[in-house]
Structures are given as C-alpha cells and as structure tokens.
Design a protein around this nucleic acid. Sequence first.
DNA 1: AAAATTAATATGTAGATACTTATTTTTGTC
DNA 2: GACAAAAATAAGTATCTACATATTAATTTT
Lengths: 233, 233
Amino acid sequence: MTAPGRLSWTDVRDKIHSRILNRTYAPGDRLPRDEDLSLELGCARATVHRAMQDLSQSGLVERKRKGGTHVRAHPVTRATFDIPITRREVEQRGSRYGYQLVSCQTEVPPPPVMARFGIHQSPPMLHVKAVHLADNRPYIFEDRWIDTGSSPEILKIDLTTQSANEWLVLNKPYSRVDVRFYAVKAAGDIARQLAIATGEALLIIERTTWIGDRPITTVQSATAPGYQLASQG
Amino acid sequence: MTAPGRLSWTDVRDKIHSRILNRTYAPGDRLPRDEDLSLELGCARATVHRAMQDLSQSGLVERKRKGGTHVRAHPVTRATFDIPITRREVEQRGSRYGYQLVSCQTEVPPPPVMARFGIHQSPPMLHVKAVHLADNRPYIFEDRWIDTGSSPEILKIDLTTQSANEWLVLNKPYSRVDVRFYAVKAAGDIARQLAIATGEALLIIERTTWIGDRPITTVQSATAPGYQLASQG
DNA sequence: AAAATTAATATGTAGATACTTATTTTTGTC
DNA sequence: GACAAAAATAAGTATCTACATATTAATTTT
C-alpha cells in the first residue's frame, strides 16, 4: 500500500479501530489527541486526522474541537443504501424493463403529502401513478407528486413513454433527500397495479426531494412481494 | 468559515455541486483535473481534493486514478441509516423501555440462517427470541442467532434480564455488517409476540455481523405495525 | 496484427507548517 | 458566589512539496 515502514491512514484507522474493538478505548472513552497518537505511531498528524475522519464518518467515534475524540458511548449500526433508477435496477438484475403510466392529473395534494414536504398548504401538483415492470411482471408501483413550480418542464414530457422517475432523476438533481422505509398491506391501487392479492405485505420506499427548500417530488414506491433492500459494502 | 478571500473545501464542494446541478457538468461528463480546478478557483489542489472526496462519498461523482473525475452517469439516491440499540431508541421516543426473553436454546441453524452468514454448515448456535417493549406494548420482536464460537461469553449472560441486543452491541463490535429491509405478513411467533393480528404487514430489519470473517450474530427484528425507518440528515 | 513493454497522466497519499475556530478552563472582577 | 473576560486547548483547514499508484495511451517487440 505504501512505502515500507510508513504508515498509511488506513493502517492508522485499522489500528485505532482494533483498539476500540479490544477495549483499549472503551465506549465513552476519550482518545489521545491526534498529535499524541501521531507521535506514538510515528506518522504525521494529518495521517491520524485522515484516519479519524473515516472513523467519525462511520459512526465509531465522535470528534469535537477542544473536546477531543470520544468512542461513541451508544454505538449505532450505520448502513448506507443506494437506490438506483428503477429501469437500471431491473436491467441490472438481467430482466427486461417495462413501464406503464396508470394515471396523471393535476390536483391539490392531501395533507399527508404536504406533510412529507414539510409544508401546510400547496398549489396543485402533478399526481402521477405508474408501474415499472420486470420481464412484463409488475415490479414497483409508484405514486408520485411533482411540484410543477420547481419542475415546470415535466408538463411537456410525455409520461406515457418516459417514466417520471427517470426524467426527474436525470434532470432534476436535488440538494436534499429524505428516504424512509415501512411496510403496508397491499390494497386498492397497489394491489391492483402490482397484480397481487389484497393483504400481501409490501415494502414501501418513500422518497422526498428538495432543491434548496423548494419541494421537487415525493414518491411512494410499493415494491413487489419478496423485494429486499440491502446495504452497500 | 475561513479567512476572507480564501476558499474552504466546503466552498469548493458547493461550487462543483452547483455546477453539476446547473448542468455545467452533466451526467457522464468528465470534470477538469483537480489541478486545473484549483488554478481556476484559486486554491490548493488539496482543497479541491477534499471537496471531491466528499462529492465522491455522497455518490455524486466517481473518481479514478488517471481516469479523472466523472459525474455519475446513473445517479443513485444514497441514504444513510442509523440503527441504535433498541432500548435507546425507545427511550429517545420518550417511552419506557421493557424487555422480555421469549426463548433461548442451542441448536443448529437452518440453511437460510447459515446463508445469511455466507456459510454452508455450522455448529450449533444460540437461538434467542425476545420482545422489546415501549410503554409495556410490544415494539420489536427479535429472532436472533449467536455464534457461541466467536462470543462464548454470551453463555454466561442472564438473558432474562439483559437483552442480547444490548450486550452484543456494547461488547461485540463487528468489522462488517449487512443490513437489509423487507416486509412480511405477521404470523406465528411474530404475531403472537407482537400481540397483533395475523396478516398485518411488518417491516423487518435483518442485520448480520462478522468480526473478520467469523460470524457473530444475525437477527431478524420484526417491528410493530406502523414502524418507519428514516434516513439521516 | 497481436502482445508485451514503456511512457504519460490524474488521482491518491504522506509529511511539514502555519493558522483558525469552537469549546472548555481558568482567571479576574463585581 | 456569580458572571464575564481571557487563556488554553484540540480539532479543523489551507498550502506546499514530494512521491505512489492505477490506468490509459503510445510504442516497441514478437
């Protein structure tokens, strides 16, 4: 990895990490100052800093100016999830992708939808329902609201041929996103469009995006039965 | 943030980010070299590097040696989730935490459980079922397998008073974790222990941890109806 | 023409130095 | 003793320099 005898920041990170694992530094403990560690390990402070940055990012330690570095007293499991464009997700599974628009109309979003955006009133938004197919079988049913104020171009898109999911992801980068997961019993539109029995348990992926503090879109994606979402690396 | 006139790495990051937002750099595009950017913006290459590191981490760009930096052609929504100890989660909601052991026995894990660990055969493991309560109401039912090879100490713990969840998180740091989410219909143990009707849709959080490549524990946490998991920041 | 070697290149890393900033601790004053 | 000002501290940031490393591109060899 590096010149012999020289410690890389990953070496330092792993060293500190293993000290946390073996309780040399226990939960809640304060770690030595970066500089002392660099002296002890025989590397530059910048190297310790880089290592600490990584440990901090992964939730193992907490750092504060003057306060020093502490092992998290209440460890958390931190996991990262990548949610790709649905078309790509289907294709990467080796399936043929299909898409079908179910409905599309402009209406005032109901309070629960406004709540997702963190607003209490709203002009009408574009309400789009669509099904994504994998090998001709329903894969995800999405129920989406789009703020035509921040995305007026969407009104010119032919949503019968191009999915709002794809257009938005490619054309409307966001500055903030909220993702949440929960489970629901299939019913109504969801059961009908996914072609499954009422009462099936489904994983819902709910995503809301903003640009600055302006809403862009919020979507409830109902996944087909058996769908699993796995963390990255 | 920084001395006047001087660009901080967050400034640089935001600048590049906004250029991605406004399509100066479009999906798939190659960005200028770090050095050229540093020249253009009037800062050190290290500052651009730090900014790029962050953009890369958040999934906006991809960097490769010699290959340069590219805006991700297929954008993904990247979200981070923190899963705390259940007791702490309950207490932070302002509820009173309770815990009840349901069963605890040593047995050979069935193939699906071995599969979670990525192994094909296994000695007997400790199989623990328990309910976490919030204000005396079932909150999470966990069905857990613990490798007594890597955690022999667990056999001395009185699991009727202390939850395996808590003991493991505090005493058995892991080097790798796999987290996945899916939905199931409540049935059998899950319905009984959560005291809900069969057929309810529940979110399952499945977590498997290793130390090095040795299994530590795998757990299916069945959350009470209505449970939501939200992304961080 | 195909394969192997070599050169060029952009990011990655390590080290040193100097300064900044948030936060705590100490000190001094009322 | 309470409160405010000053000092001390530890991480954070910015810059420079030098070299490492992975990849692509160019060149030579077979």
